[in-house]
Write a protein that binds this DNA or RNA. Structure first.
Length: 850
RNA sequence: GGGCGCUUAGCUCAGUUGGCUAGAGCAUCUCGUUUACACCGAGAGGGUCGGGGGUUCGAAUCCCUCAGCGCCCACCA
């Protein structure tokens, strides 16, 4: 088959993917040591972004590489119902239809979102295929599959039985926009300027007032105390006295608590247990009443009529106005403080009291810490392990409840006659159940998505059931974004250890964010988003993958622009054209025989491929993808294309040429799977799939012959350099004296250096190629030669400087004694070579002067 | 307040046990229609590796310090 002049990825990629999928190449072989990785399930609610392309691409490189190296390999794909994330998207859809969640029952909503997600999912899975992931699709797990729910429930039951799960009234981070609570780590903290208002609370039973300082005056209606530090002399005799709460016309007591910092504000703090986590704690210590004044929809409640129903922002203004009217504001100061925001809506998070299911994290974190101490998991980059440890050391209990219908229902029921009587039951499709003659009502909340995601490795490998993938647990590699270190990685480790007694993965690779070409975060609003599907359509899947991994190191955010994709595209085309040349050279009826190195170039290219292969192995074994890709790129472009192909136009060795293309394609396959497989399929001597090939074996070659070829290269490079610096563009001949290397490689050198002729002579003249270290001259005219005197002198000076540096090093006794012997020997050798060059150059200059 | 990271060529970045003349892609300049490729070939220019100090025979790499940038965590109202 004849190849088109340029590689057109879109013509081949879908067919190649279908070929792989149909052949069963993605399935584990059942032979060899297991290698497994689990896809961080993309949200089933939309399109993949560039970060997915990076994430999936990196993993796929490892998977393809390990598969070729004979591991029993599996890449388990997934899709995430993405509870809250999907819910937000769906609620927006409802809004467009003029409806709200309150128009439907929980079952109706669940069904509707299910259908919505079902439509989106197919699209997402097609995109994963376009990216080229070699995942075992038959093993795909959706986070709402029954087996997921079953495992999640059994884990919850175990936690319940072990007393690690509890229901409690706590201040939770609440999104009034989406009407659900968040986990602590989902709150976006922003440092900003705010106002600290000093407000006078009049004393009762005596004259005077106490001035409190607050940034949230609107919560004043919920105050149930004023607190001061017990050691604060200013307020000592006020402790226990009562004040009149302005506007609310209620009496509250001044209490003493160590929590209060006498140096901050006025040293007196209003205590609002229902709307501030610290005040909540103070309230517990002093047994204070909790008055909720902000409703779950973000409007005021339990307040005087004029404030009722106001949004928080409005309520603040109204409260301040009312206080001003009564002349109770003593001072306003600007302060820097941190405000928690809803990461999704951008609105402030309201701390509100709610009964929620919590998980006691300390015992779980303790085991995770032990595993980290014991180096049971290797992190790439290593520094993230320390960060994770710190997180685990300061861990807080995890709020598992979400007030959204889209998710896994929490399998708990409450006795309708006794609010403290909760039982575990999986019969969540019923609103009420009867147990022991008592009626129990279903918990309406669902689990935080990350509670199920946190069990992903042992769920997907069916480690608990001993399914046919259970041999892959613990998984080999977990690869995801750095931003998921605490919300996902930490939880997988903790829950993995808790449920299976094993760490869920051996290696963790964390990649940074893909930024735009000016190092700005990509976002729809900035309009700087690179869509992976657009890139694939324009340049091909391999180009995108090559571009994304180039020069990227773990954990580091990195800029990315079209230049890199284009460089990847160009490489694919280069590979394509190497193949075209070889196909043309070998002909349609070529059948390969055992390759044997004949020419110097043959020995050299085998040596080059060997070095590259070893580099790729060493780097890929340590997930240094960029370096591996770089080694692959350069051996193919620089060594195979620029030198070996050129040399083979002069001295051909068909069997070795076939071997070189095969090895090149195999080495490149993990990085550029589509183009390499496409080419493989067109080479008529293959009837197999490249994806299922084994990693190349290097054939015999002579180091000496390979080194000889390097010398030919040196001479050619020197000749090219000198020729380009000469005026005009005439062709020159090469003269040489008694040099068998040149003699034996005459026509090769002539071709590579584009010389007119190469002839042996006893009377050399012209320009000596002194730096090449050979007795060779370019046959140039006397005029050209004298014009080149300056050039020669420059080179002589440079060589002298090199010699000085080398001699300096060798004259240092410490260097000679302490540096490795090999290094010292090399230095000596270099010195000798440089000296020889000087002699040649000097001789040349003398001749010129005559 | 605590922690982490970054600062290397015009741009974006590699450089993992300290060791040849510090690399890549893109960009720039010169030349090139050679029977794979202009999505190309040949060649070139461009860096006191943020500043200062230290350890070492030897530092982009290790230590200290200063400066600038970025991120994460944390209940100071």
């Amino acid at each position: 088959m004849k190849l088109a002049k340029a590689y057109e990825p879109n013509e081949y990629e879908p067919n190649i993917y279908a070929l792989w999928e149909k052949s069963g190449a993605f399935k584990p072989s059942g032979k060899g040591e297991p290698f497994s990785t689990v896809m961080p399930p993309p949200n089933a609610n939309g399109n993949l972004h560039i970060g997915h392309a990076l994430d999936m691409g990196l993993k796929d490189i490892s998977v393809r590489y390990k598969r070729m190296r004979g591991f029993d390999t599996v890449y388990i794909p997934g899709a995430d119902h993405a509870g809250f994330e999907t819910w937000v998207v769906y609620e927006k859809e409802l809004g467009k239809q003029g409806k709200s969640r309150f128009d439907f029952t929980r079952e109706q909503l669940y069904g509707q979102v299910w259908d919505f997600v079902d439509q989106q999912r197919g699209n997402m899975e097609l995109q994963l295929r376009a990216i080229g992931v070699s995942a075992d699709w038959e093993k795909l797990v959706f986070t709402l599959d029954s087996k997921v729910i079953k495992t999640v429930y059994s884990t919850f039951k175990k936690l319940w039985d072990d007393g690690l799960v509890y229901r409690g009234e706590r201040i939770v981070n609440y999104s009034t926009k989406f009407q659900t609570s968040y986990a602590d780590i989902e709150v976006d903290h922003k440092q900003e300027k705010g106002t600290l208002w000093h407000i006078a609370y009049p004393l009762i039973d005596r004259d005077g007032e106490i001035i409190i300082a607050t940034t949230r005056p609107e919560t004043l209606f919920g105050d149930t105390a004023v607190a001061v530090n017990p050691n604060d002399e200013r307020y000592k005799d006020l402790i226990g006295k009562k004040v009149r709460l302005p506007l609310a016309d209620r009496e509250i007591t001044i209490i003493a608590d160590d929590y209060v910092d006498a140096a901050f504000g006025t040293g007196a703090v209003k205590i609002t247990p229902a709307h501030d986590p610290n005040d909540f704690e103070v309230g517990k210590r002093h047994d204070l009443e909790r008055i909720q004044v902000i409703d779950f929809d973000g409007t005021m409640m339990n307040v005087p009529e004029e404030f009722k129903g106001l949004e928080v922002v409005e309520a603040r203004k109204a409260t301040l106005n009312a206080l001003k009217a009564k002349d109770l504001i003593r001072k306003e100061e600007t302060i820097e403080h941190t405000v928690g925001y809803d990461y999704k809506s951008g609105l402030p998070i309201q701390p509100l009291i709610k009964d929620q299911w919590f998980l006691k994290m300390e015992p779980l974190a303790k085991r995770a810490l032990e595993a980290l101490e014991n180096d049971e998991i290797t992190f790439y980059p290593a520094s993230r392990k320390q960060i994770l440890k710190q997180y685990l050391q300061n861990i807080r209990d995890w709020n598992l409840s979400r007030q959204i219908p889209w998710g896994i229902p929490i399998p708990a029921f409450q006795n309708v006659d006794d609010e403290n009587d909760w039982i575990f039951d999986e019969f969540v499709t019923e609103e009420t159940i009867e147990v022991d003659g008592k009626t129990y009502a279903r918990e309406e909340d669902t689990f935080d998505t990350w509670f199920s995601s946190g069990q992903w490795p042992f769920i997907t490998t069916e480690a608990l059931e001993g399914g046919d993938l259970s041999r892959f647990y613990p998984t080999s590699l977990m690869e995801t974004g750095t931003d998921l270190l605490d919300r996902w990685i930490a939880r997988m480790i903790m829950l993995g250890l808790y449920v299976t007694d094993k760490v869920p993965f051996k290696d963790v690779y964390l990649h940074g964010m893909v930024l735009d070409e000016h190092s700005q975060k990509m976002s729809k609003s900035k309009g700087n988003v690179i869509n992976p599907m657009d890139s694939i359509a324009a340049y091909g899947s391999d180009a995108l993958r090559l571009g994304l991994i180039a020069s990227r190191s773990p954990g580091q955010n990195q800029a990315f622009g079209p230049d890199r994709i284009i460089a990847g595209r160009n490489f694919c085309n280069k590979l394509w054209n190497i193949a075209r040349f070889i196909e043309n050279k070998l002909g349609d009826d070529y059948t390969p025989a055992a390759p044997v190195a004949k020419s110097l170039a043959d020995h050299w290219i085998i040596s080059e491929l060997k070095t590259a292969k070893e580099t790729i192995e060493r780097t890929l074994d340590n997930y240094r993808y960029a370096e591996a890709s770089d080694a692959m790129y350069h051996v193919i472009w620089d060594s195979v294309a620029d030198w070996y192909i050129e040399a083979s136009k002069d001295q051909d060795n068909p069997d070795l040429l076939a071997w070189v293309i095969d090895v090149s394609l195999t080495l490149a396959h993990p990085f550029a799977p589509f183009v390499t497989e496409t080419i493989w399929q067109t080479l008529q001597w293959h009837d197999s799939l490249l994806i299922s090939e084994t990693w190349p074996e290097i054939i015999d070659f002579s180091e000496i012959a390979a080194a000889e070829f390097s010398r030919v290269q040196q001479l050619v490079t020197e000749a090219r350099f000198v020729i380009t610096s000469l005026p005009g563009n005439e062709k020159y001949g090469l003269l040489y004296e008694n040099d068998s290397l040149i003699e034996d490689n005459k026509s090769l050198i002539k071709r590579l250096a584009k010389l007119d002729r190469v002839v042996s002579t006893y009377q050399p003249k012209g320009l000596r190629l002194a730096v090449s270290g050979r007795d060779a001259w370019l046959d140039v005219s006397e005029e050209t030669l004298s014009e080149h005197q300056v050039n020669l002198e420059e080179r002589l000076a440079r060589t002298h400087a090199d010699i000085q540096a080398l001699e300096g090093r060798l004259s240092n006794p410490n260097y000679v004694e302490k540096a490795p012997e090999k290094l010292v020997t090399e230095t000596k050798q270099q010195l000798e070579e440089k000296k020889a060059v000087v002699i040649r150059l000097q001789h040349e200059l003398e001749v010129l002067k005559i």
